[in-house]
């Protein structure tokens, strides 16, 4: 496979294992194609390999290109140089399988005129019509009900988004990304707009779901504690143009609970991460 031969300067051990998501020398420059706009380099020479089943967080100052990184993996943005591959297939190629990737957005994108269940089934409708996924609708309806109970939204299947709290809407967005069972889950500061309590609750729930569904998660956040609490590995980006300046292995025991945040090792790792931040 081509991505295996690409020498990665960052991951010394990643090359030997199966990487599900890989960024190979990725640059992103905005506004290069139009003369009127000033071009802005958002990302520079990003090499990152994420193994199947791994939970990796990306942190960095605002405007460092965290979301850009994610949007390229989602196929919403194209890289200027280098390739982004999922399962060894370039995201921008025709062979790319959309059903392999789910994206949880920063803000809930539930459509106001659709009930929770119908919002959940929207990706299925689109992907099915375009022949990207198989299976009949009844199968996905059942799956929708399972997911609704997985994230604790029982009883709200027929509610409209404006009848739900922000935390509940974000749960809908999460289930929407899981409905067609992708192996990769991309999360763009999904809990950034929630209050601390709801956030803590959803963090735990996300770990539980991750454990149960065995997804590979790429998680963007600006909350360093959140990154440490959730991840196997935290990747630190520099200010624009974003470059990977460090990767920290989080060797905290799993399963993690609220108590994990109080352990010595947690504080140590969070402090280490914060130190890296001060140096930027």
């Amino acid at each position: 496979m081509s991505n295996q031969t690409t020498g990665s300067s960052q991951g010394t051990n990643a090359a030997s294992r199966e990487s599900l998501i890989s960024f190979n020398s990725v640059d992103k420059i905005y506004g290069r194609d139009s003369a009127a706009e000033e071009s802005v380099a958002a990302l520079e020479d990003v090499n990152l390999d994420i193994e199947r089943g791994e939970f990796v967080s990306v942190v960095g100052p605002s405007g460092c290109g965290k979301s850009t990184l994610l949007h390229m993996a989602a196929g919403i943005l194209e890289s200027t140089n280098g390739t982004v591959e999922i399962n060894g297939i370039a995201v921008q190629s025709d062979e790319h399988q959309r059903n392999e990737v789910g994206l949880v957005f920063q803000h809930p994108v539930a459509l106001e005129w659709r009930t929770v269940r119908k919002n959940l089934l929207l990706p299925v409708q689109i992907l099915k019509e375009n022949g990207e996924i198989e299976g009949d609708m009844d199968h996905y309806r059942e799956r929708a009900d399972d997911l609704i109970s997985l994230v604790g939204l029982e009883g709200f299947e027929s509610s409209y988004p404006n009848e739900l709290s922000g935390g509940m809407q974000q749960r809908v967005t999460l289930t929407q990304a899981l409905i067609y069972n992708p192996s990769v889950l991309l999360m763009d500061e999904p809990f950034g707009s929630l209050d601390a309590m709801t956030k803590g609750e959803l963090n735990l729930e996300l770990l539980r779901i991750w454990n149960e569904t065995e997804k590979t998660i790429l998680f963007i956040t600006h909350d360093l504690d959140e990154a440490v609490f959730l991840s196997d590995r935290v990747v630190v980006l520099s200010p624009r143009p974003g470059q990977i300046v460090d990767e920290i292995e989080i060797d905290l025991e799993r399963p993690r609970s609220e108590d994990t945040r109080g352990t010595e090792r947690f504080v140590e790792l969070a402090t280490e991460l914060r130190q890296h931040f001060k140096r930027l």
Partner: peptide, 16 residues
């Protein structure tokens, strides 16, 4: 923008 990104993500056609 978020909705637009979502549609792009799922590869929705113009008609969709």
């Amino acid at each position: 923008e978020a909705t637009e990104n979502m549609l792009a993500m799922y590869g929705a056609t113009t008609w969709q």
